[in-house]
Amino acid sequence: MAPVTSDRMEVRSSDDVVRVRQQVRARALEVGLSLVDQTKIVTAASELARNMLDYGGGGVATIEVVSDGIRRGLRLVFDDQGPGIADIQLALKDGFTSGGGLGLGLGGAKRLCNEFSIDSKPGEGTRVTCARWK
């Protein structure tokens, strides 16, 4: 499943999170997601980009328009070289936080997407992938 378009964006500051959001919104419109679905994926992008900034020391966001022949969708990949997540199940739980947040970031973002996966090794970094289909 090759992406139709792919944008790579560095996330190093809070302003970058805003830029990622705007780009995701533009791509979601292009894919033709409904207003509610657009809002969901943009919010998920915001959560995940901020997570990456706060806990992974920043990283790279990749925004891809994907197609499986019938449907079109938006896939987001967030890569960081941060400390990694030791217990992914625990990190996905609502209310769990290793920082000062509400602990809704990962679990909340998961609920806003159709597909969601985390790949992480302590000490090496984290990759979060999520997708929303039309």
Partner: peptide, 8 residues
Amino acid sequence: ITLVELGL
């Protein structure tokens, strides 16, 4: 709708 889904 999104906020509710997010859990806030």
